[in-house]
């Protein structure tokens, strides 16, 4: 149990200034979730990097449904068995998060994927071509959004070619 509890206690102490009771969750014994605004993301990640808590295991982009008007970006950090998830909620029609790649270079590849498949703009990231989707993929079409319609997309593609 110490493998899980010690890192979690440490990260709770580290991130105490950003942990509000209604914005914090313990979805499982080894997990801690913290909801953040996009503005708080950089200071929190900087704290984790400075104090060498865990490593960025993945960035998950979520579409909770068109009706919510939101997109979620989840930054998963792992240390031993413990997983910290920073959850950033952004408006669907102006979805953007700041880049964390100056702090964690590996994040570049995850952020690029996030922007391509879910359409969350990465503020501060250098413009570059696509890393995952085809070069001829239409701009502004994000396959992991729930309103993405494969059938419509196929029609459009056939009409275009």
């Amino acid at each position: 149990m110490t493998l899980t509890q010690k890192p979690l206690q440490r990260v709770e102490a580290l991130l105490e200034p950003w942990m509000k009771p209604d914005k914090t969750g313990r979805p499982a014994g080894n997990r801690l979730d913290i909801w953040l605004t996009a503005d708080d993301l950089l200071p929190v990640v900087a704290t984790l990097v400075e104090d060498e808590w865990g490593y960025l295991a993945a960035i998950t982009g979520l579409d909770p449904g068109v009706a919510t008007g939101e997109l979620h970006v989840l930054y998963h950090f792992a240390e031993g068995a413990a997983v910290l998830t920073l959850r950033v909620v952004v408006p669907r029609d102006a979805a953007e998060v700041p880049t964390i790649r100056p702090l964690i270079p590996l994040a570049a590849i995850y952020e690029q994927e996030l922007s391509e498949v879910l359409g969350v703009a990465i503020v501060g990231a250098p413009a570059r071509g696509r890393l995952f989707l085809p070069d001829d993929w239409p701009d502004g079409v994000y396959p992991l959004r729930k309103d993405f319609q494969l059938e419509q997309f196929n029609d459009k593609e056939q009409g275009g070619s």
Binding site: A57, T60, G61
Partner: peptide, 25 residues
């Protein structure tokens, strides 16, 4: 390390499956 994030909204199918493979890291 292979990382999976799986989300259910209460249905018969996953709402989201995120896969992060080690080669990417």
């Amino acid at each position: 390390e292979l990382f999976y994030y799986i989300r259910s909204t209460g249905g018969e199918q996953p709402d989201r499956v995120k896969v992060r493979t080690p080669t990417l890291c």
